[in-house]
Computed example of a mutant assay.
Amino acid sequence: MSLFYVDKNAQDNGDHEIHTATCSHSPNLNNCDVLGYHTACSTALDAAKKIYPQSNGCYYCSYSSYTSESK
């Protein structure tokens, strides 16, 4: 089970990325909303989409929920 966050700042394509607490590509925690502990990034992504409908997994830490064409 991992602690997940969603970036408050959208990427250039409009996606708000989800990250695990240990991701080295995670933004400053002041720029994130806590999503809580999840057993899979898919459930963290579902939680993120309740806040930001256009959310996506991080290429590096949530790859199974990553759907964007650009890194």
Rank of each mutant, 00 (worst) to 15 (best):
49 K>S: 03
61 C>D: 00
52 Y>T: 10
68 S>R: 15
17 E>F: 09
14 G>W: 10
41 C>L: 07
63 Y>T: 13
14 G>N: 14
43 T>W: 04
46 D>Q: 13
51 I>G: 02
64 S>N: 06
47 A>W: 03
56 N>H: 01
43 T>F: 13
9 N>L: 13
8 K>Q: 08
26 S>R: 14
41 C>Q: 01
39 T>A: 14
68 S>G: 14
22 T>Y: 09
37 Y>V: 12
53 P>G: 08
52 Y>L: 08
49 K>A: 00
4 F>P: 04
27 P>E: 05
17 E>M: 05
25 H>C: 10
31 N>W: 08
65 S>N: 00
19 H>Y: 15
48 A>V: 12
14 G>T: 11
35 L>A: 00
33 D>K: 12
18 I>N: 05
16 H>A: 02
19 H>S: 07
66 Y>D: 04
71 K>P: 02
16 H>D: 09
17 E>S: 04
34 V>D: 14
62 S>V: 00
42 S>C: 07
36 G>K: 10
35 L>T: 04
42 S>V: 12
28 N>Y: 11
50 K>D: 04
33 D>N: 15
52 Y>P: 10
69 E>M: 15
23 C>M: 08
67 T>C: 06
65 S>T: 06
59 Y>P: 06
38 H>R: 02
22 T>I: 03
52 Y>H: 14
61 C>Y: 05
6 V>A: 06
61 C>A: 07
1 M>I: 06
32 C>F: 07
20 T>Y: 01
17 E>V: 01
28 N>L: 01
66 Y>Q: 11
48 A>C: 02
63 Y>M: 06
11 Q>C: 10
1 M>Y: 01
41 C>A: 11
14 G>V: 12
65 S>H: 02
5 Y>P: 06
49 K>D: 02
49 K>H: 01
11 Q>S: 11
27 P>S: 06
5 Y>C: 02
42 S>T: 14
52 Y>I: 10
29 L>Y: 04
51 I>S: 09
3 L>R: 07
5 Y>F: 14
64 S>T: 07
63 Y>W: 07
25 H>L: 11
37 Y>A: 01
20 T>G: 01
47 A>P: 05
36 G>Y: 03
37 Y>I: 14
46 D>Y: 04
25 H>V: 08
6 V>C: 03
62 S>W: 00
52 Y>V: 09
16 H>E: 10
22 T>N: 08
52 Y>Q: 09
14 G>A: 12
18 I>Y: 07
3 L>G: 00
40 A>Y: 15
40 A>M: 11
15 D>N: 05
1 M>G: 12
67 T>W: 06
66 Y>I: 01
31 N>R: 14
22 T>K: 05
5 Y>H: 07
71 K>H: 14
9 N>C: 11
20 T>A: 02
6 V>P: 13
40 A>E: 15
13 N>R: 11
54 Q>D: 04
30 N>D: 13
50 K>Y: 04
68 S>W: 07
13 N>K: 08
45 L>I: 00
10 A>P: 14
22 T>C: 01
